[in-house]
Computed example of a mutant assay.
Amino acid sequence: MVTTETANPAAKMRTRDVSIYYGSKLAIDSVSIDIQTDFVTAFIGPSGCGKSTFLRSLNRMNDTIPSARVEGTIELDGEDIYASGMDVVQLRARVGMVFQKPNPFPKTIFENIAYGPRIHGLAEGKAELDAIVEKSLRRAGLWEEVKDRLDDSGTALSGGQQQRLCIARAIAVDPEVILMDEPCSALDPIATAKIEELIHELRGRYAIVIVTHSMQQAARVSQRTAFFHLGKMVEYGDTSQIFTTPREERTKDYITGRYG
């Protein structure tokens, strides 16, 4: 039995009976979850359990895989994101993605941030664009480190700085949801701590969903946790409850390290 919360009209995103296939292979089996702006939601589970596949469905990133097929309903503010009239480019501006490996554009630090606002028409002139770049870098905790080198290449930054640059790039287009797919797995402990601190600071401003292999990280940064196993969401609830008194035996076995 999957633990879910009662339907919350304030949910930013809502999925109902979502199944995802790669060809004939079922990767995600009938997942229903509400994602709220007030909380950081963590997806945990063993490798290959489907958590990243499900995360990618929330901004239609699976559209890039020809064999992928999504069934069920995924809504953003009550609107079906898989409806035929949905503008996918606009959707991905509203629901940003930060990937496992930092992927700055081969452009300057400034242009990495300015690119999205420019193509979405969010700035009317250079002064507005400058302001967006500074605000985004400040929110990502990177401004003081790069303000004197905005013309340097984004790829010249350290791995942790590159990841914060990618978060700033996602923030720059004024998203409503930020999806993070193991954003710290390639980073050292110090850079990881900075990203976790940043997630705390961004909480409440955006709905944040993070996929993580680290149960310690999920416990530190999230208020809601969903445990995935073999393509199913086994349990979902308050992070403290999931880690201390899980209702499902499979959750307990995973939390206590009996498999992983």
Rank of each mutant, 00 (worst) to 15 (best):
A140H: 02
E144C: 01
R118H: 12
G125D: 14
G125E: 13
I113R: 03
P102M: 14
T155P: 03
P106G: 04
V133M: 11
L137P: 06
L142W: 01
F105P: 11
L150W: 06
L142F: 01
I132V: 10
F110E: 12
R139N: 05
L142C: 00
P102G: 05
K126V: 08
V133Y: 15
E144T: 04
H120G: 07
K126Q: 14
A140T: 01
K147G: 00
W143V: 00
P104V: 12
D152N: 10
P102D: 12
G159I: 00
H120Y: 15
V133D: 12
E111P: 04
P117I: 01
A156N: 07
A127V: 12
A140K: 00
E124L: 12
D151G: 08
R149Q: 05
S136I: 06
R149L: 05
G141M: 05
P102Y: 11
E134G: 10
A114Y: 09
P102K: 05
P106D: 10
Y115G: 00
F110W: 13
G125V: 11
V133R: 14
A131P: 14
A114Q: 06
K147H: 07
A123G: 13
D148Y: 09
K107P: 08
L150A: 04
E111K: 14
K147Q: 07
D151P: 13
D148I: 04
L150N: 04
N103V: 15
A127Q: 14
P106C: 08
N103Y: 15
T108L: 09
P106T: 10
E111R: 04
Q161A: 01
T108A: 09
I109K: 04
G125N: 13
E134Y: 11
L129F: 13
L142Q: 00
L129A: 03
P106I: 05
W143M: 00
L122C: 14
P104E: 15
W143P: 00
G159E: 01
D130E: 11
S136P: 03
W143C: 01
R139C: 03
N112W: 06
A123D: 12
T155G: 04
E145I: 10
E134I: 13
K126A: 05
D148Q: 15
